[in-house]
Structures are given as C-alpha cells and as structure tokens.
Write a protein that binds this DNA or RNA. Sequence first.
RNA 1: GCCGGAUUAGCUCAGCUGGUAGAGCAGCGGUUUUGUAAACCGAAGGUCACGGGUUCGAGUCCUGUAUCCGGCACCA
Length: 661
Amino acid sequence: MIDLIFPDGSQRQYEDGATGRDVAASIAKSLEKRAVLIKLDGKLYDLDRALPSGGVFEILTRDAPEALDTIRHDASHVMAQAVQELFPGAQVTIGPAIEDGFYYDFARDTPFSLDDLAKIEQRMKEIVDRDEKIVREVWNRDEAIAHFKAIGEAYKAEIISDLPETEEISVYRQGAWKDLCLGPHLPSTKHVGKAFKLTKLAGAYWRGDHRNAQLQRIYGTAWASEADLEAYLTRVEEAEKRDHRKIGRAMDLFHLQEEAKGMIFWHPKGWTLFRTVENYIRRRLDAEGYQEVKTPQIMDRGLWDRSGHWEKFGANMFVCETPEGEELAVKPMNCPGHIQIFNVGQKSYRDLPLRLAEFGACHRYEPSGALHGIMRLRAFTQDDAHIFCREDQIEEETTKFVRLLNSVYSDFGVHLDSVKLALRPELRAGSDEVWDIAEDKLDRAARQAVNIKIDRLPGEGAFYGPKLEFHLRDAIGRTWQCGTLQLDFVLPERLDAEYTAEDGSKQRPVVLHRAVFGAVERFLGILIENHAGAFPLWLAPTQVVVATITSDADDYGMQVAQELRAAGLRVETDLRNEKINYKIREHSLAKAPVIAVVGRREAEEGKVALRRFGSDGQEILSLAQAAKTLALEALAPDVARRTTGAAAASPRDSVGAREAG
RNA sequence: GCCGGAUUAGCUCAGCUGGUAGAGCAGCGGUUUUGUAAACCGAAGGUCACGGGUUCGAGUCCUGUAUCCGGCACCA
C-alpha cells in the first residue's frame, strides 16, 4: 500500500501499482478528465505511470503553472513527430522545453526553409487532433541502442550509450512515433493544445560543440491558452520596439556602417549620453580610491608574448606591421598596460591595494556572427581597473567592488538578472589549494554583497583564475555579461610584478581585473532598452526643449534656453513656425523629459510652462524657479546624494532584492 | 566562422506569376503666427546593397560577394 498526502492535508491509502489517474478517478470523474500530470514530493510524473512511492501528492490540470513546461516539452515531441512524418530521413536528437517555448534539433542534410515551418505547424495541429495516447515504456539498454541504430537514429543511439548504466531507458510512444525521453509527458497529444507557434530556424551544433555536425534547430513557443500565446506575441512585439538599434536611430544617438563593422559612430546626442555615464562612473571611482591612467593603444608584440595574450588570444587581436618591420598589436584589453605602470619604480606593501582605472578603448577581432548592435562590438570601451593587492585583501576588495556595482546599477535603474561564479577550468594555472581559496573568497564576498542567488559555472573560469560575472537583461530577454571581477594569479608572474613586503622580501601581488559596466557601449545598449529611450532627466541627452507658441516669443524663448543652460541643463530650442500641438507631439515622441512652452503670456510674465514626459499637465513657474528646480532634478544621483547631504540610499537593499528579470 | 532570413527614397514599408518603381512620414520651397500629441499647398528625392549570369526585357529568376537580422559556436 502507498500513503498519499493531499494538498489539503488529508491522507489516503492506495494499492501498490496505482497510477495518478486511479487516484484522480477515486476523487472525482471530472478531475480524472482534467488531470494531465501528477506531482509527488515535488517531482512531476506521468498521469498513467504507477506511483513509485507514497508522499505529498498533487494532481495537476493543464492550467497549472507546473504543467506549462510539460506542454512545451510535448509540443517539441509533436513537432518532432510532424517533422519525421513530413521529412522522412530527418533524425531526431534532443528537444527540451525552454523559457517561453521549446526547440528540437534535427539532423538532416537539407536545411529547413521558412516555408517548411508553416507545413510543420499544420501537421502538428493534425497530430494534436489525432489525440494519440502518449505511452511510457522501459527498454533494455542494449536493445534500445541496437533498435535506434537499426532505424537510422544514430544520435539517439549515441545518447543512450552515454547514459549511465544505472539509468532507466524510457521511451515514449505517441501513435506510430516514439522518442527516447526522460519524461514526464501529458496523457495524449490532445492536451498539448494549439496555442503554439513555430518561431525561428537556426543551425546548432550537436552537443553544443562546433567540431560536431551542425543540426537544424526549430524554435517554437507554446502556451496553455490562445490568450497566453497572443499576450506573449504582443509582449515580444512591444519589446522589439525598445531595441537599442531602433531607438539609437530614432533618437539620433549613433550609427554603424559597413566600412567599420562592429564599431560605433557616436552622434552628438549619443556621445553626450556616453560622456554623462563616463563622468558618473569616474566620480564614483575617484571616490572609491581608484587612480585613473591612460595606456597605449598599440604595443609591441613582445609584450603580448610575455603576457601570454599572443598565444591565448592572438587570433582575436588586430595586428599591424610597420615599414621598419615591427610587429604591433592593438590592445584587446588593458591589463598588460596597467602592469607596466605598476612595474615602474618600487612598490611597497604599503601601496596596496593599488587600484588603476582606465576607460580603455579595446579592439578585438570578433567573429562576424558574434556582432550584435552595440552590445557586442569589435571596438569598445571598458570601464576597466586592476586592483593590485595581497591575497588577504582579495575578499575585502571584492566585497567593495560588488557593493559599488550594486550602487551603480541602482542609480541607473537597471536590475541584476543573475550573478555567476565561473569556477576552475580543466586547463589552469595554480595549485588546487590556491583555487580553493580563490573561489571561496569570491563566493563569500559576492554573497555578502548581493542578495541574489549565485550560479556556479564549473569549468568556465579563466585559466588564470575564477571570475564573477554580473548579467543584465535586454528588452527581449537576452542576458549580457556586464560587470565582472576576475582573480588573476598568473599575469603578475608573467609580467614580473612585485612589491616589497614588510619583511623586506619580494612578493607577487594578486591582480583583480574588474569592470562595473564591462563595456560602456554594452551598458548603454542595456540602458537604452531598459528605459525604452525615455531617460531620467540626468541621463537624457536633451533635457529640456524650449518650444515657442508664436514667433512673438522667440526672443524670450532664447532667453529661457540661455538661463536654463546657465543652470547647467542641456537645452534645445524649437522656434519653428509650427503649431504648439505639432511641437508637443514631436518632442513627446522623441521622449524629451521636459518641454518648456513659452508664448506671449509667459514672455510678458517672465514664466515658463513645463510639461514633463509622460504627463499631459503643465506646471507654470517663474524662469528663475524653473531653472533652479530643473537643475536640482538633473543632478546625477551620486551628486544629488552629496549635495543634499542625504544619507546615501542603501543600494545593497534596493538591488538584488528585486526579483530577477 | 556555421545554419536560416533580409537588403527598394533620410525613415517605415508596398511592388502578383519577369514588361522598365510607389505610399506615408521626414527634408526642401511657399502660405499660415498658431496655447499643450499631426495646419495647408508645391516641387524634388531611387545605380532597387554590390558584381556576374539567364532573358528581347530583371527590383522580381540563377550565382558570387558584402552588411544586417534570428539562432549556434565564440566572448580569453
């Protein structure tokens, strides 16, 4: 007998071998009809599978949030079935549920075309209408391998061969089609419903390795209801409007062109934004005891050889040769340069931690397919710094950095999506003891400073040390690594950095590579998408537009602009011979934070009518009052904290505490 | 780099099975002097990404290249 505890706390006993369906039926016939899955001690099982044990038990209907992943997973199976019916010879590989949907990877010589998607979608709907029972079977391992080989499913055979000996080989059948799968699945194809849509085609390497064959991946989205699907599609459409590439063009911030792919032409407004952000972080770094430096853009190959970059990173560096035969490389990062500065003269333990910062223009030869708007470039600016410190200072410096990062993100109104700790890779420098300490220190420091789960990424660290990655999310949900902190035991050694310790001995400092934005350009891309171009006053390239009603007010309008500029604001005038409605509309669409309307009345009274973005009311102030108010509002958050003397908001609580995403 | 797709006016886009390119907005010229989200009129604007091919004829079909977009790989 098995004991089940139901959500309401009641308990009941069932015969051994009872299935979820039996249980549902014992409660109510209507429940059995609606049931699609069961949850036993937190784990999902097929409705028709014999319960493996007793425990906390719950029957899930199709609209349960936990069922959504299974709907998506089943949608991927239905898609695979449709593909194999329509395209005999296409091999199945894997097809999981993912955020918002699913995909399935097929091995097929001829790639699918977009036209195929419509056909596959149609066939999927037919399979749903067939309402084929989904049945779980357990197979013998060797027979399963032999079987899948025999029917030409080499990938499936390979997957089974790679499963641990102890693993049960489960195969799910739906009609004449079957797939090796862990499950669980819905009782029949009908339950998948039709709220799905195939969205994109892509190549994808078998097992994520580019040395392997390239498979054909089909992505789809699936939902519990048509309404959810519609809502999702609308959401995606809305998000696409916030694309930084669109806004960048519409707001005249920057452009890119063929002759300089992966590099930005910043227009005046975009560069104003860039400078505002740069000035902000410069103030923060100054206040945190960093010292800004500037190092050469191009350096001799010899230095890159010694640093190890030539060997490890050479293929991604832009190199040039001079007529005199020198081999030079454009810097892909700033570390070797900073170490050169550290190495001049003598350093004492008293100088540590020494924090050298640089807005370093880095160039990297990125594969063409990697480029993406201003998020992934070939030329970008790191808000880079290297902290030279003793081993016992690592933790404190890391904590300080993470606190700074939190505070900065909070000031910009962006929220951490995730924090990752990349751990020792297979090929690495340094002993395991050193790695133990290093990983532990980063982990502890990060946990102390952010209130968010830290994902551990085994094997993803750099060969020279573990790293912390801080990821932000763009408009359509992709995440980008922005902030980073990397421990480095190797570079100081290779470039012979040393300091004199208290006992007079020469010691190697540890280097912390760290960046808050990562790349200023990428951070700006995130910022543009997060605000959809409607920047807070302190960031807006144009803060106030002075718009006149009639030409009578032109002189006064210019005077208003002048006074606001004198108060430190970025002001434009719109004296065009257009109706005020037209001007309001245009500047509202351009997301100007403040429109100062002036007509004859304001001119006579020495006033301005302020209209703020997102509201349709107006606020009438004297010119002097307006200048004062706006100037105060336009202060950068860090300056505002200093100026008003208010206690600095505790960013530690405000970032990270927010739910990710 | 790999797979799929796109590229037509400054921008957003239309252009059926091949017959010689079109709209809206913006810009320019004029009229209008206007009170909080689009005044009116006019003229102009194109090597249809670039190269090669098929054809009497190519924006449209084939092919090569470039860039961009969606993924994959990469992101030290």
